[in-house]
Write a protein that binds this DNA or RNA. Sequence first.
DNA 1: GGAGGTGACGTACC
DNA 2: ACCGGTACGTCACCTCC
Length: 867
Amino acid sequence: MKLNFIPIDYSYFDFEGRNYAKIIGRDENGKRVCIIDSCPVYLWAVLKDELSRSKINSLIKEIEKISLDTKGRKTEVEKVELREKNFLGKKVKALKVFATNYKDLHDIADKLGMPEIEKRRGYDLGFITHYIIEKKLKPLSWYEIDGELLNNSQEFGGMDSVLEVDFCVKVEKIRETETKKFKPKVLAYDIETDAFKIGEGEILMISLVSDNFKKVLTYKSPKEIETDLEYVEYVKDEAELLEKFVEYVKKISPDFLVGYFSDGFDLPYLKARAEKFNVKLSLGLDGSQPKFSNGLNIIAKINGIVHIDILKFIRSVYSQYMQSETLSLNEVAKEFLGDSKKEFKHKHSSKIAQDEWEKYYEYNLHDSILTYGLFEKFWPDLSEFTKIIQEPIFNVSRNGMSANVEDYIIHHLEKFNEIPEKRPMYNEISERKSREKYEGAFVFQPTPGLYENLAIFDFTSMHASIIVNYNLSKSTLLEKNEKNCYESPELELNGKKTKFYFSKKSGFFPELLKEIVELRKKYKRELKANEQKTGNFLTNLTGNQIKELKTDAVNPILNKGEQKTGNFLTNLAGNQIKARSNAFKLLANAYYGYLGFFGARYYCVEAAASTLAFVRKYNKETIENVAKEGCKVIFGDTDSVGFLLNKKSKEETLKFLKKLNEKLPGIMELELEDFYKRGIWVSKRTGEAGAKKKYALIDEQGRLKIRGFETVRRDWCALARELQNNIIKQILKDGNEKKALESLKEIIKKLKQREINIDKLIIRTQLKKPISEYKNISPHVIAAKKMMEQEIPISQGNLVEYYIAETKDKKKLVRDKVKLPNEKGEYNMEYYLAHQILPAVENIFQVFNVNIKEIVDGKKQMTLGEF
DNA sequence: GGAGGTGACGTACC
DNA sequence: ACCGGTACGTCACCTCC
């Protein structure tokens, strides 16, 4: 039979000693299809130079005799072929050694210790990776499949009759075909429990949300009177709840089962409770139960249905570009959907009042609605990433950016005829980790002050363009200076001043990055054209988002609020181009990190250190050039320079930018970040010097850009943050400190009259490790201990909230005054004044030679006098 | 038993 | 174990007198 097919979930199985890929997807009618296919598995034996043909022939004969009988399985070398390949850019002769079962490639590699063999490679790729490379059946692309329909066939042990799919096909031929419409079936879920520790409390209810489907399953009902909420369905008890959950998943039969933190919570919890009640959680299309990886970072897999923990994708790909201070569902939903969790105060089910249960159902349902919304929102990004990386979406959605970069490289080696490098061994990793650090980027020393009329230039994808431009990588690194090669600036590595040299002959690693950068440019152009055509893009943005657009047209944050405007569905093509452009950009930006990542196959400190040496050189040179032009430099960090216009008009400044660009090599490019009306830089708390990485700017439209200040630090209380923000805003608007001073006085007065709400005084700090591992017992550790005592769930990675209270006895340490938000007490006025308010604003007023301490002390005396 | 230096810790910038 | 160097700032801890 023939069918059109889009692959979604990949797994493999062994049958009669061989590996088969079992791929679940859909046909163009939305029917669920399983295809089964095999592919040859092999590893590479790279030969030493200058081996004679006869020597190679006898080696091949020797290798062909290898067979293994371990792990209850017979594997043999089935075939050996001699090939001309490249390894790390070098031409090599290599033997392609085919084996029966991919799981034995490692053991076969161990048997290839012959002196003629230089290296063994390619035995550490997963079978699915191997399969996708061999058969070019890339996830989420469309294919025309020729194959044999399996209908209660005995082939593969009668597998097709067990699988809950519409067709099961044994593949004969695969041909790529044009893209067709694909709207995935998505089911979001969320559970509510009586305890946070996995399996330790009852599961009270489970919500399910899909297209035109809402459900809350529960056996907890108020006063045995059933609710009016039409989406609530009652079951007998917890065991039936679990059974019903499985039943609904099977009935809806989604491509994606989506949760938020569901790898670490919902699915493990369901499993634990199912075990307790002896319920089979047979969610898999083959009837299997979810499988969990062990370790700190749990991964939960369901056969045939892609389980997505959308938190993981958001965290690894987008968190650095987000403004949310935590990755809680509430904050993330607010940022991307403009919606938040329903109010509900958690308590043990035995303490929930009769009339509170309906609120609890709504709360539970809404979490699934938000999760569903986030999946919808990130679907273009998720699917574009998957298509680009070419690994299954299950992996791409969980991988860190380094792993995604590596997978991209692995899937694109073929056109360079490259043999893949191996993963580093444990000892290599520790060696890499323990090596001395190399020098990072350059940060300009600012002078405190208020400045007017500034411009900021920055380099676009600076690290990437340097890697491309100077051909930096493991395979292009030369052992010594050669004629006509790239030479890094002088740098220090392992305490030695040195330089590194890189070949001018293009290497596959920088070449791939060059392609990524070019594709990113291409799709960015398409995106712009599409926006102009549809014209409905800018209208949906807030002022701040338009501003972001100016600096970076595909910042993912731009996608905020689209759900509300209905843009998501009507402008799907535009969203896809945006997501694609964005994915290439993120990939390009992660490339440098990959070079210096200890777990990378293509790790290369020399290249990473050289990249940074070039980064420093270009930044410093740009700063010098700006100064030479007569513009006073105010700021500079890594890839940017900020300066005073010095009577230059904007046009002249842009002309100057053009001049600077003409001198830059290759794809390196300096661009205008923006013009600013005013900017403020303050001194450090200790000493006179200007603080680096701390500044605030205002543009002509009155929009603020604040970096590094307490305003943007989550471990300061809201009162200090909001006050500082207001003061910065007023100063930058007015150009003087007069009004700002008044708002400060007002806040101090309120603080002293105890009019400040405790909410504004809560300090939030993350518990970064288990309580017992802290050497210094700081306030947040005390707060965490108090939470433990009160049995409030708290563990590594959680935010701890507390405030500093007045104490009866004069205690010296801050930690002795810590109280949890639920503890009664009065806020410690002295503390908030001296340790939150003043430090946040002191240096700002210092710029105007206003000494806040004197004013505050004066006030204090005055208030004391009043009493 | 207070001053002052240092280290641990958390967070931000790019 | 899943990017890492530069930088700021707080608080506890330690040493010194």
